[in-house]
Every structure is written in C-alpha cells, then in structure tokens.
C-alpha cells in the first residue's frame, strides 16, 4: 500500500478527530468523573474517597423520587402542550405563509430568545401575580380567591412557553419537505383534506415530531429555573434537588447519583418512545430533519 493511499484512508478519520476529541473532553470525561463521584463517600471537611458505595443511588431515589416523578409528569404535560400549540404553527408556516415572509416569521419565533431566559421567566412573575395583568382583571371583575403564580399551572405554563420554539422548528423542517405535488396526488386519488393530512402529511412529519419531542421533553424535565421562579410549595423539580445537594448540602455524590438517575430515566423513556414510534428509522430521520 502506498503512502498516498494510506493518507487517503486516514483523511476522514483525521477530519473527524476534532469532533471526537471534543466529545471525549467535554462529554465522556465529565460523565465518567461524575460516575466516579457518585460512588464516593465522605464530607466537605474530610474530603471524599472512592468507596463504590452504590447505596447513594438508593438514598437519592428514596429522598427525591417525588421530585423525579414530578419532573417527568411536568415534562410530559409541557411537551404535550407544546405539540398541540406548535404543530398548527409549523403547519401554517410551512404551507400557508408565502415564501418571502417565511424567514421573517421564523425570526419572530426566535426573537424572544434574544432576551435572557431568566428575564423572560421573571416577566411571567409580573404577568401572573395576584394583581398582575391576568388576575388583576379577574379580581376586578369581582372574583376572589385562588392564585396562578407559584402553582404547578404556572410552572408548566412557563416550561411550555420557554420551549415552544424547540417544538415548532423541527416539525416545520419536516413539513417543509413535504412536496405540494404529494398533496395534489392525494387529492387526485379522491382524498379529502382531512384524509390527505392524516394519510400523507402527518406520517411524513413523524420524524419532525420525534425530534421535537426529544428536544422539548429532555430539557424540560431537567429544567429548574421555571420551578424556582414560578413555582410554589410542592412544585420543586429534580434540577433544584440536584442543586441543593451539590451547593447547600456539599454532597457531590448524592448530586451526581441524582443526575445519573435522571439521565437513566430519560434514556429509557426516549428509547421506549423511539420503539413505539417505529424504530431507529425515526431516530435516523430525526437526526437528518
């Protein structure tokens, strides 16, 4: 084999090397170190030593399973809301908006992201407060009692609001790829609009939906800012629990164990979901969406 062919064969590997390096340094190394930390015992003053103490996982689950389950439930509800709200928007942009306005509409969709995440969430604090824009009117109309801010409604609403664009964009991309001629063909075959949508458009947008759900559900379930700012009692999510264990209780093993439990639960959920939606194919198509 000549040096030239060797080089030619190695070239692709050399080119993906930086990508791999990046993954190893910023993903694999922290992950392994976190795994190792989660199996340590000790205290802030005496230091922590590797003891392979798996019991930390059991303790973490016992102490925080309520928060973990709550995070998943909030995640599912918020993702559901995002899908219901987001799909029609994506559909509208893909099929109804004229080509020249599309980029402007997409820009508008992303516009709120130019404002800090915290500030955007904090703003809901003003809007939803007892005398704010929404409830102020409700109270002015003579209704009394009850509040929205600092309840699970506010937290889920905040989550859905903050992550909606992550739902819309992938669905939009997959709908954009549906060629209008397919709809014509469907009409030629005597399908009405509903049928065309259900038999042609919807199946073709499944990879987009899959990607949307992944991009929305995973960050939503591990979010803690919304629960912190908009939540009240009994709205704490697992992110806050991890922060408390790490920062307040100086218990990195417990915090790491919790992170791993969350990751495991999310991974299992995602794979189950991929299976249900019909496989790796969806995963692959989602990756290209």
């Amino acid at each position: 084999m000549s040096a030239r062919t060797v080089r030619a064969r190695l070239a692709p590997y050399a080119m993906i090397f930086p990508g791999w390096l990046w993954l190893v340094i910023f993903f694999v190394v922290p992950l392994v170190s976190m795994l190792s930390v989660s199996l340590m015992t000790g205290s802030d003053v005496d230091g922590f030593t590797q003891t392979w103490h798996f019991h930390t996982y059991v303790e973490a689950w016992n102490k925080y399973h309520v928060q973990i389950v709550r995070s998943l439930i909030y995640g599912l509800i918020a993702t559901g809301i995002c899908l219901v709200l987001g799909y029609p928007v994506a559909y509208w942009i893909a099929f109804r908006v004229r080509q020249k306005y599309k980029s402007m509409i997409l820009f508008l969709l992303l516009l709120p992201f130019f404002v800090s995440f915290i500030i955007r969430t904090q703003t809901w604090n003003f809007i939803l407060s007892d005398n704010g824009m929404v409830l102020g009117l409700y109270h002015a109309l003579g209704f009394h009692g009850g509040h929205v801010l600092n309840t699970s409604t506010a937290v889920i609403g905040g989550l859905a609001y903050n992550f909606l664009p992550f739902t819309i964009l992938p669905i939009y991309v997959s709908l954009e790829r549906v060629h209008p001629s397919l709809l014509e063909a469907s009409a030629d075959l005597y399908a009405n609009k509903t049928k065309s949508f259900l038999r042609v458009v919807l199946p073709l947008s499944i990879p987009g939906i899959f990607a949307s759900v992944l991009l929305t559900f995973v960050p939503v379930a591990s979010d803690y800012v919304n629960a912190m700012i908009l939540g009240g009692t009994r709205n704490t999510m697992v992110g806050t629990a991890i922060e408390t264990e790490y920062v307040t209780n100086f218990n990195p093993p417990m915090a790491s164990a919790l992170s791993f439990i969350l990751m495991a639960v999310l991974l299992v959920g995602v794979f189950a979901y991929a299976r249900a939606l019909g496989t790796e194919e969806a995963m692959e198509m989602a990756a290209t969406a």
Partner: peptide
C-alpha cells in the same frame, strides 16, 4: 431591585475531591 435574578448556575465540576 427585584430579587431572584441571582446567578442560578451551579456547575458540576468535581473530579477528585480532596479534604480541605
């Protein structure tokens, strides 16, 4: 000023954890 806008990030960056 309105409180609550505190830095919320808490990095998980522990490698070896030596005693103080």
């Amino acid at each position: 000023q309105a409180g609550g806008l505190t830095a919320l990030g808490a990095g998980l960056a522990a490698c070896s954890i030596a005693p103080a």
